[in-house]
Amino acid sequence: MTTLAVTPFHRRVRTFVRRLPVFIGVAILLAIVAYPLIWLLLGSFKQQDEFLSEPFWSLPRNWSLDNYTEAFVGGGLGKYILNSVIAVFPSMFLILFLGTAAGFALEVMVWKGRGAVLLVFLAGVMIPLQMILLPLFTIYFKLHLTGTLWPLIITYTATGLPLTVFMMATFFRAVPREIFEAATLDGANIYRIFWSVGMPLVRNALFTVALVQFFFIWNDLLIALTFTNSQDLRTIQAGLLNFTGQYGAVDYGPMFAGIAVNVVGTLVLYLFLNQKVMKGLTAGSVKG
């Protein structure tokens, strides 16, 4: 009677003990991932003297939003975010529209040389951006575009295209050809087939590519740093880099607040769309 009652319990204890190292390992892993971010959030509420005299694990004395106000008012964070939005969304729209049309033309339509053109696009995924910065700088300078956000929009659009064309072509390849052939037999013209048949079929893929491109462009530093030479044009990444310069080692609170705003933006997106983001980014991993 007693042995019968104890055995399952024993077995459970034994399983638990055997799995304990895994639990501890996972706990440490999650702590390593989460702790810097928790520290960041706590720090964004701390006053300067708390940074200087309190130990790092202390909680903020009060939870005021002063640092955030200071980051937006004194640090110009609002302007940086606005610049990012102005640069990111038009380029994203252009990338998606041009990239999907090109993917359709390269994968669904039948013509000589389409394989070669796809390879030409693929080459653009491999080339380091450093190869195109200087000529572009000269071109934008000659066209008097320096001093506007146009260089960012144009460059983001062009550099986002190779991966998008490649990914969209892959997605169109997965669509059964019969669907397009049936549509031609129904008498639809080619633009209608693209817009009313092709586009809806890859709607999910389009959304995935949009997410991937959003993260690439929003997080970009190299292009933003190259083509924005004045304070007024800085994107959030370039502006945040400047935050340290401006405040140096002096003003921690607003800088933490600025970093936190930057992090929380992507966090919210990730909270709702994490599975799509993970799938999209790993699918886009031909970009190297």
Binding site: L94, A101, A102, L106, V117, I132, T159
Partner: peptide, 17 residues
């Protein structure tokens, strides 16, 4: 369909390379 993307890509990436 392909022209615009190819044009932008060529002007902003291939030519600068």
């Amino acid at each position: 369909l392909l022209g615009p993307a190819l044009l932008v890509y060529s002007l902003v990436m291939l030519v600068p390379i």
